[in-house]
């Protein structure tokens, strides 16, 4: 029985170590820790072009992460992209004239949403829509415009 006992204890330790490893992967390695606190509140914003913005992209204010993109959808009526944002609950003083921009982190980096607060004293609440948006900068369009203005300038 003694040997059997040792085996049982070892297996118990093994299972525990395996679950600790899984927990480590979930909480420390992946974004589950961020996804777990899915409280906070939702905002939406409409863009004529979101570029390559993806779900789970960061939402920042003054460069600090305040939330993430929950989903990106297409509105068949207005031909616009509707982006749903989830903002952390403690960031509850975003003015209702806030400006939403799609920025690119570095030249080749991922795209994220930057919020620039306006001056209004009314705050956005759960389910509100951000009225002022600036679409993503598309590199090809910029180059095209640049060349066009050069040609026009000559």
């Amino acid at each position: 029985m003694g040997k059997q006992r040792v085996v049982e204890i070892m297996v118990g330790l093994f299972m525990a170590a395996g679950f600790v490893a899984l927990f480590f992967l979930a909480m420390q390695v992946s974004n589950l820790s961020a996804a777990v606190n899915s409280d906070g509140y939702q905002l939406s914003a409409r863009f004529s072009n979101v570029g390559s913005l993806k779900a789970r992209a960061p939402v920042t204010m003054a460069g600090v992460r305040v939330g993430r993109v929950e989903r990106v959808e297409f509105d068949t009526q207005s031909y616009e992209a509707v982006v749903t944002l989830r903002i952390q609950a403690e960031v509850d003083t975003i003015p209702d004239d806030t400006f939403a921009n799609i920025f690119t982190a570095g030249l080749l980096g991922e795209q994220y949403i930057g919020l620039e607060p306006g001056g209004s004293l009314d705050y956005l609440r759960d389910g509100d829509e951000i009225a002022y948006t600036q679409s993503a900068l598309i590199l090809e369009q910029m180059i095209g415009q640049f060349l066009f203005s050069k040609a026009g300038g000559d």
């Binding site: 093994f14 299972m15 170590a17 395996g18 679950f19 600790v20 490893a21 899984l22 480590f24 992967l25 420390q28 390695v29």
Partner: peptide, 15 residues
């Protein structure tokens, strides 16, 4: 049962 636990340990230790 053992395989996914071993794989999790492998990945965790690898990280």
């Amino acid at each position: 049962i053992a395989m996914p636990l071993l794989a999790a340990m492998f990945s965790a230790v690898g990280v």
